[in-house]
Amino acid sequence: MNNILNQYEDKKVIYMKYEQQIKKLIEFLIKEEGIEVHAIDSRVKEKDSLSRKLKKKGNKYNNLEEITDILGLRIITYFEDDVDRIAEILKKQFHLDEENSIDKRKKNDPSVFGYSSLHYILTLNELRASLPEYSNYKDLTFELQIRSILQHAWAEIEHDIGYKSKYEIPGEIRRDFSRIAGLLELADKEFIRLKDFLKGYAENVEKKIQNHSLDLEINKITLQEFLNKSSEVKEIREQILSDLKVAMESDIRLIENDIRVLKFFEINSIAELDSVINLNRDKIIEFGKEWMKEYDDDTIKIDASITLFYLYYVLVYQDYSIDYLTKYLEISSMSDVAYDEFIERFEELKREGFEL
């Protein structure tokens, strides 16, 4: 035991460096596959924790390399099916110790409540271990847990409560534990179903907009797809910005605000929006160019939905009153400073006799 603890002291710094390297690598591999995860946590086992483990296991270990969890990582996914997707990625990039790895999600013991993680014991494969930046870590193993965020929630609560077996739990609440575990498992499956539905819905919306079949309610997916695919929206935007050099960016967070504003103008479908844009095409361009005169090149960033931005102003300006403009600014969540500036600008345009 003392020999192993001495080895640990000698190699702790190496493990800590390896922790940073391997975490960055796994983050990169997951991102490359386009998978979003909730968190990737890591730790190097503390000496006290290792000492307790050695005492508990007796003479099981002869040297530090036999202990597979000195370095541990945990990946928490949003969706349960991403656990298997990530597992497949990592099996291709690392050597998997199948004998010591276990998928605890597939346990058949009905006396154990809930469900748990996929546990892998991994080492660098030969190709990666041959690279200079990984040469110091070629013989080091690490433990990796992969679980969904709901599986993680169950594990954390279960750990806090302190009951893992039905034999430990008072009979009066045994059924409650089983029901909660079943609900969480069902919720995991339902979230996957919803994700798949939304993916299919988005693909169907894209096809409909490409075919100019616009009888679609306005929501985050339909509006974003329309703004991205409509040639009319793009042409108006380019006309407004033709004489300017400004940064173009897209911010999906603005979509929620656009939906709220469109409802304010009683525009409830993509077909209605397309019709209003086409009807006011020249006015949107004219108003946009007039408004943009106030800005110097490169002083502002323009969102990709600028066509909607100036459509709103055209609609307000055509039926202009201070009250109407004020209601629009309130519904669009304008800041107090911008609020006063916009009212002043509209008033100025009216005084100058600007007409649409």
Score class of each variant (00 low, 15 high):
Ser333Gln: 10
Glu80Gly: 01
Ile180Ala: 00
Arg179Gln: 05
Ile121Phe: 03
Phe177Lys: 01
Glu98His: 06
Ile302Tyr: 11
Lys104Ala: 07
Ser213Val: 15
Lys56Glu: 05
Asp319Glu: 14
Leu25Val: 01
Ala247His: 14
Glu126His: 06
Ile67Val: 11
Val233Asp: 03
Gln20Cys: 09
Glu355Val: 14
Phe346Ser: 08
Ser165Ala: 02
Ser135Asn: 11
Glu341Ser: 14
Ser130Pro: 09
Ser305Gln: 03
Leu64Trp: 10
Asp82Ala: 02
Ile180Met: 07
Ile157Tyr: 05
Val276Met: 08
Leu279Gly: 01
Lys11Ser: 08
Tyr78Trp: 08
Glu355Gln: 13
Leu308Val: 08
Lys91Cys: 01
Leu262Lys: 11
Arg253Met: 10
Lys17Ile: 10
Lys164His: 12
Leu356Asn: 08
Ile75Pro: 04
Tyr61Phe: 11
Tyr61His: 05
Glu347Thr: 10
Val83Thr: 06
Asn63Val: 01
Gly288Gln: 08
Phe191Trp: 10
Glu249Ala: 13
Arg128Ser: 01
Thr326Trp: 00
Thr299Met: 14
Ser250Thr: 11
Glu232Asn: 15
Phe265Thr: 04
Lys327His: 14
Leu183Thr: 03
Tyr339Val: 05
Lys301Met: 10
Glu344Arg: 14
Gln93Ile: 00
Glu33Gly: 01
Lys11Asn: 13
Ser275Gln: 10
Gln21Lys: 14
Leu186Ser: 08
Lys24Pro: 00
